[in-house]
Design a protein around this nucleic acid. Structure first.
Length: 538
RNA sequence: GGGGCGGUAGCUCAGCCGGUUAGAGCAUGGGACUCAUAAUCCCUGGGUCGCGGGUUCGAGUCCCGCCCGCCCUACCA
């Protein structure tokens, strides 16, 4: 029973938790890598902050009301709720495990914990006279039986506006419904953007939002009466709430709004709402206005990321460029999926996806770079020290340089992650991995090992310790991004026995040198990132 | 129509307030090495910086015009 769903992790701990959200996904779409991209970014952020030792609350979920879902359900001969249940269980929830999402909660807008709170929220605003009855007038297509968007209409002859589906003239129709006094918040929003430049990111998104609001806001029609798949308006049974006005509230209803004051206090306001740029306005204009109207604190940041482009064009189902996450994960694994999208695309900008590119990055950075490094270190500790990590002797300039490089890498990566510059963080970690590979090649421990004098043996010990210690740090740094591989590496280093669980290694200390205790038992396992001989170039 | 962003090496992209021979990663080619997942390390790139003008001692980097792609210009999610 969905309504009985309980958060998997209620222990948000003491103090303010880092609260990150994805949008709730509209169940009527098929999940594609665009959705997974957002979720992965949120997940990496959540895991990164957990690794820093912070308490974290990571929410995702599904948006299930509205006309489209209702119509699909009808077309499939089932109730809207049954249709939504099916999509959630067969499509949306499975994606989360496909990409290894570690969400603390999953909210559905059809759950009573949501619907009841939404009704209360709007009833409150209605009582506070923030909502009033009015008339919505817009272009309506009789064939579609729905209102159309002014900008999707086609121009017909003699200036008539045509329905893009039926090619027939639309007529202006009006509908009585309820309006939220959004216009009253124009100046307050502008002032807020001004005072909180970090509220809408990146800069380009912020500029668009500000420009939009500066035009002046109109009141927003928040109810519909032409169909009934939605949350009933508390004061008028003939209307249901407009789906967005319902959906946005998930961020608070799932955070214990009006039901769990302790959780709510600990979690709200959200630190980051991650959204695609297509839904920026709802999150950066309507949502904060709703919160202002209700007297609730606003989220710290709404971050809009870009589109994934396939073949230079925005991914779309109709052009058959919509790709299911499993298509990629089946070939490269969930870790590489996560790594690739955050590594190859500047978060906030549009990014090109191609099989060639993911294949290239997988091979060069993961298989040849990190994976091979782990193999060569494990092999040499096995060969020269029977698998037991030796204690290092005196550090030379090369060791000191690498240790300093590590500290710098952790600093850069942490700062970049804090600013949602995932690609920058991963570039720094990759660059450090390269440095370790270069260090080994320069020090040539395999040559030093041919001399069996005590001094030479000490030198080999120092070199291999240095490399293994570097891998220890890389494990911690990569754990939020590639949890499976990082755990495998951690195990290979024998670190669980000597340092404890990987998840508990504080990221903030990851740059400290010399944490991996000598004596750790290092084993050469299966390759971390097996070579993929024939990439699926479909 | 108005506003914004982008068009830089085969690919993906950096190039802040204009200034020595235009950069990175990957791919390519050559070399070194052999611990390692035929992996690693070093060297190697001569690309009309979309097109045409202009300003300037000097312009991917500023101005004007044009071409191409994308986004915004409110109630599909």
């Amino acid at each position: 029973m969905v309504d009985a769903a309980t958060p998997s992790r209620k222990d948000a701990g003491d103090g303010k938790a880092f609260y990150v959200t994805t949008p709730i996904y509209y169940v009527n779409d098929a999940p594609h890598i665009g959705h997974a991209y957002t979720t992965v970014a949120a997940d990496v952020l959540a895991r990164w902050h957990r690794q820093r030792g912070e308490t974290v609350w990571f929410l995702t979920g599904t948006d299930e009301h509205g006309q489209k879902v209702m119509r699909s359900a009808e077309a499939n001969g089932v109730s809207p709720r049954a249709w939504a249940d099916r999509l959630v269980e067969t499509a949306w929830k499975p994606v989360l495990s496909t990409i290894d999402a570690s969400n603390d909660d999953f909210i559905r807008t059809t759950e009573t914990r949501h619907t009841e709170r939404v009704r209360e929220f709007w009833n409150h605003l209605y009582d506070a006279r923030q909502v009033y009855p009015g008339t919505y007038e817009g272009p309506y297509c009789v064939s579609c039986e729905e209102f159309k968007l002014p900008n999707e209409l086609l121009d017909g002859e003699d200036g008539a506006k045509l329905c893009p589906i039926h090619g027939r003239p639309v007529e202006m129709l009006s509908e009585t419904n309820y309006f939220f006094k959004l216009s009253a918040f124009t100046d307050k929003l502008l002032a807020y953007y001004e005072e909180h430049p970090e509220f809408v990111q990146p800069e380009s998104a912020r500029n668009e939002v500000v420009a939009f609001v500066k035009q002046g806001l109109q009141d927003l029609s928040i109810t519909r009466s032409t169909f009934n798949w939605g949350i009933p308006v508390p004061w008028d049974d003939d209307h249901v709430l407009y789906v967005w006005i319902d959906a946005l509230l998930n961020y608070v209803t799932a955070a214990g709004y009006r039901t769990d004051p302790l959780l709510f206090k600990r979690v709200w306001p959200a630190d980051v709402h991650l959204v695609g740029k297509d839904i920026l306005r709802f999150h950066a204009v309507i949502w904060p206005a709703m919160l202002m109207a209700a007297g609730l604190p606003l989220p710290r940041t709404v971050f809009a990321h870009g589109w994934l482009l396939v073949g230079g064009e925005k991914m779309s189902k109709t052009k058959l460029t919509g790709i299911a996450p499993s298509q990629i994960v089946d070939t490269f694994g969930s870790d590489a999926f996560r790594y690739y999208f955050l590594r190859a695309i500047q978060f906030g900008s549009d990014g090109s996806f191609s099989w060639e590119q993911i294949s290239a990055i997988y091979t060069s950075e993961l298989a040849n770079g990190l994976g091979n490094l782990a193999s060569r270190v494990a092999a040499m500790v096995g060969r020269y020290f029977g698998g037991t990590l030796p204690a290092p002797a005196a550090a030379g300039p090369a060791e000191t340089a690498l240790a300093e490089r590590l500290a710098e890498t952790v600093r850069i990566a942490d700062e970049a992650m804090g600013g949602l510059r995932f690609h920058e963080a991963l570039a720094a970690i990759d660059s450090f991995t390269d440095a370790v590979n270069g260090y080994l090649t320069e020090q040539e421990p395999w040559k030093v090992a041919k001399d069996d004098s005590p001094a030479a043996r000490d030198r080999v010990a120092t070199i291999l310790y240095t490399a293994a210690e570097s891998l220890r740090a890389i494990s911690v740094l990569h754990n939020p991004v590639m949890p499976k591989s990082a755990a495998a590496l951690w195990k290979e280093l024998g670190a669980a026995e000597t340092l404890g669980e990987l998840d508990l290694q504080p990221l903030t200390n990851a740059g400290r040198w010399g944490l991996l205790p000598p004596g750790s038992v290092i084993t050469k396992g299966e390759p971390l990132f097996p070579r993929i001989e024939e990439p699926d170039t479909k």
